[in-house]
Nucleic acid binder design. Structure first.
Lengths: 240, 240
DNA sequence: AGATCTTGTTCACATCCTGTTTACACAATT
DNA sequence: AATTGTGTAAACAGGATGTGAACAAGATCT
């Protein structure tokens, strides 16, 4: 499944720009290079994305409605060391330098040189990944004594054992864990783990759920963590 | 106490440029800002300094007598992730981009804008310091009886034997060791060890992993230190 | 300069892994 | 009871991985 593999390896880039043309242009560059791109039109949307996703790089327009780019830059730097590249117009000379002094890693000027932009982005992402080595223990979900480490793709049992999950099992469990208490249809699940249409004869999800249960449920025949909702789908609902 | 030393001591910048005027100009900028500046006129002098001093940032002229800047850049990147800013003339457009793609962090064009140059340098030094805190608080990593000496580029077996690693094997092992428990894709790994794009048919990493396993695993067929994560990549996960 | 060695990369093929399908037993709902 | 949905063992197929061998570009030595 080369598609899925690509997705797993994708770095996420957030483009913050109120001008749709710029946004689309930038998104296009990055997407063809295999990055995943999120978009935001202003500061508010930007924060919403940052709170939800793990972003590796921000392309931040210096001119924005509401809080402008420099303000947002300052606020981000208060709490994060994420890579930031400012997007500037030709007339923003002074602001560019101010941005660098406020901790922006770089800036680009419209119109963009795609090749240069991509090379810079890649180098910056490599640097930020490096610096995260010590600090990234945050991406862990626990339930009923189990711990699921998203970045390490590891599941640790209550006894501390490393339980190996296949890619599909891991994706499935992650999806369920991220939506505790919400019932997900097979259609949903299949879409999340392999971007595929579900048809009524497709039993893939059922089989994967079964294998998952045998690995994490105390009594797989009477599941306590992943429950079946007859006629609908499955729901992740560990007892607290 | 390398960390404390790092923070308290002046940051050292190495300026590599055959043109004395440029060198003096750059050195002046940095010195007034409180940096310590070393100078080199060509590749040979550069290596001499690098072998003797702990440098935090290199300003590297792209045009040099003997080995040119791009060659030196490539050679440095073979063994170090230090911050590098290329110094270029107005006519070096293509080389600038090539340099970025070879792993240079940035470039500046003569004539320099002092304020911008300093801001960029400061940000870059911050990033490289960050990434080094995690990896350099002990320049020797041990696992399952093995010892990997980062500075000497040496691997010592549990029996005390010196096991020779090629450059690629060493870089690969270092990269993995620095990110214990984190799954790295072939894409990631290839980028770290040779700044190259990975395509789905590229088996380089697999072969190198295999050779590494045959050197350090007790039973290379059933690896215990470097594990395969099917469909994703590899993870360094020594038994505790 | 030429010869030799080193080493990253490519190729080819065997083997393994894992998502999917199939089949059938059982459970839930009507 | 009939119908539909779910659990799960077993088999399958195609992609992913392991690996020996060959290759080529650099580095090193003579």
């Amino acid at each position: 499944m080369p598609i899925k593999q690509k997705i797993l390896a994708k770095q996420k880039i957030l483009v913050v720009d109120d001008d749709m043309t710029s946004r689309v242009t930038l998104a296009g560059y990055f997407e063809t290079e295999g990055y995943e791109v999120c978009e935001a039109e202003d500061g508010e949307q930007m924060w919403a994305v940052l709170n939800q996703e793990t972003i590796n790089l921000i392309m931040l327009d210096i001119r924005l409605p509401g809080d402008d780019g420099l303000t947002l830059l300052r606020d981000i730097r208060k709490s994060s060391d994420i890579g930031i590249i400012m997007v500037t117009g030709k007339s923003d000379e002074i602001d560019r330098i101010v941005a660098l002094e406020m901790g922006a890693d770089d800036y680009v000027t419209k119109p963009f040189n795609a090749r240069e932009l991509l090379a810079r982005s890649k180098n910056l992402i490599r640097r930020t990944l490096n610096s995260k080595v010590g600090e990234e223990d945050d991406d862990v979900k626990t339930f009923s004594g189990w711990s699921l480490y998203a970045d390490q793709r590891r599941l640790i049992s209550p006894e501390g054992e490393d339980v190996r999950l296949t890619r599909g099992e891991f994706e499935l469990l992650s999806t369920l864990v991220q939506r505790v208490g919400r019932v997900l249809t097979r259609d949903n699940l299949l879409d999340y783990i392999s971007h595929r249409e579900w048809d009524p004869n497709d039993r893939t999800i059922d089989v994967l759920i079964g294998r998952l249960r045998r690995k994490i449920e105390q009594d797989p025949q009477n599941p306590n963590i992943i429950l079946t909702v007859h006629g609908v789908g499955y729901v992740f609902s560990p007892r607290q």
